Simulated assay, not measured.
Amino acid sequence: MAFADRLRPGAAEAVAAFQKQGKEVHLISGDVAGAVGDLAGRLGIVQWQAEALPADKAALIAELAAQGRKVLMVGDGLNDTAALASAHASISPASALDAARAASDIVLLGTDLSPVAEAVRVAVKARRRIKENFAISLLYNVVAVPIAIVGLATPLAAALAMSLSSITVSLNALRLK
């Protein structure tokens, strides 16, 4: 009789999406090497570690962060909480233990992991929009404030320019969808 761990729904899709985006995927587990190696093989994960203690998981995240990498940790167990808390961002499914959910930045509503890669993709786009909006605001202030200080702008023109700046930033943010 052979036993094998079932993949969490969406795990294969999430790993494939990360790899397609050029992201490095690690699997670190407290389970025995045979089970972890089999799981890594089914998911196409090259870098994996078995029989890891909670401190080992947190140490891997610290090591990757020291190399300048931004680490996303996905976990669901009590032994994942230190790593979830120390990662740049962390995600747990709704079925995770309370401690893991409390340590996570995001809790998925279901058990399906396929939204994880989409969440990262949206976060990258959102960060880009935020930077663009800061640039738009900075440009507005560099141009508008000196004009207002010298008295070349009427209150109506200043109000319209400020409204236009706010509308521009809002419309740029809406491009996220």
Score class of each variant (00 low, 15 high):
Ala59Leu: 06
Asn172Ile: 10
Val74Asp: 01
Ala83Lys: 00
Gly77Trp: 01
Gly37Leu: 03
Leu156Tyr: 12
Ser104Tyr: 02
Ala66Asn: 02
Ile28Tyr: 06
Ala103Thr: 09
Ser92Pro: 12
Ile106Ser: 00
Leu7Val: 11
Gly77Ile: 11
Val46Asp: 08
Lys23Ser: 10
Ala16Gly: 07
Trp48Gly: 07
Gly30Arg: 04
Ser86Asn: 15
Asn79Pro: 14
Ala159Ser: 14
Ala33Glu: 09
Pro155His: 02
Ala65His: 08
Asp112Thr: 06
Val150Glu: 00
Phe3Thr: 11
Pro54Val: 15
Phe18Pro: 10
Ala4His: 02
Asn133Asp: 04
Gln19His: 10
Ser86Trp: 10
Gly37Asp: 00
Asp56Leu: 09
Arg8Ala: 11
Tyr140Arg: 05
Thr154Met: 04
Ile28Asp: 02
Leu109Ser: 08
Phe134Thr: 07
Arg129Pro: 14
Ala100Leu: 09
Gly75Leu: 04
Leu156His: 09
Ala17Leu: 04
Asp76Ala: 12
Glu13Thr: 15
Ala40Ile: 08
Asn133Met: 07
Ser104Met: 01
Ala159Gln: 10
Ala83Pro: 12
Ala96Met: 06
Ser29Phe: 00
Glu24Lys: 14
Ser104Glu: 04
Leu7Asp: 01
Ala159Glu: 06
Gly30Met: 00
Glu51Met: 07
Gly44Val: 11
Asn172Pro: 13
Trp48Phe: 13
Val107Gly: 05
Ala153Val: 12
Ala52Thr: 14
Ile130Asp: 03
Ala2Ile: 13
Val25Met: 01
Leu113His: 02
Arg127Met: 14
Arg8Pro: 12
Arg101Asp: 04
Ala55Leu: 04
Ser165Glu: 04
Phe18Ser: 05
Val150Gln: 02
Pro93Asn: 01
Glu13Asn: 05
Pro9Leu: 13
Met1Phe: 10
Val25Arg: 08
Leu109Ala: 09
Asn172His: 06
Phe134Trp: 04
Arg8Ser: 09
Ser166Val: 15
Ala123Ser: 14
Gly10Gln: 10
Arg6Tyr: 15
Ala52Phe: 06
Ala52His: 04
Ser137Tyr: 01
Arg42Trp: 07
Ala103Pro: 02
Ala65Gln: 11
Ala99Ser: 15
Thr111Phe: 05
Ala99Tyr: 03
Ala35Asp: 14
Val74Arg: 07
Asp105Gln: 13
Val124Tyr: 04
Phe18Gln: 03
Thr168Glu: 03
Ala123Val: 15
Gly41Ile: 10
Val71Asp: 01
Ser86Cys: 15
Ile167Arg: 02
Leu53Ala: 12
Asp5Glu: 11
Gly30Ala: 02
Leu84Met: 08
Ala144Lys: 02
Ser165Trp: 03
Gly77His: 03
Gly34Tyr: 06
His88Gln: 15
Glu51Trp: 05
Gly77Asn: 01
Ser165Lys: 01
Ile136Ala: 10
Val142Ser: 12
Trp48Arg: 06
Arg6Glu: 10
Val71Lys: 04
Leu156Gln: 11
Gly151Glu: 07
Ala158Ser: 03
Leu108Asn: 04
Val15Trp: 03
Leu97Lys: 11
Val15Ser: 05
Asp76Asn: 09
Ala83Thr: 13
Asp31Trp: 02
Phe3Pro: 10
Thr154Ser: 14
Ala89Phe: 14
Ala40Asp: 01
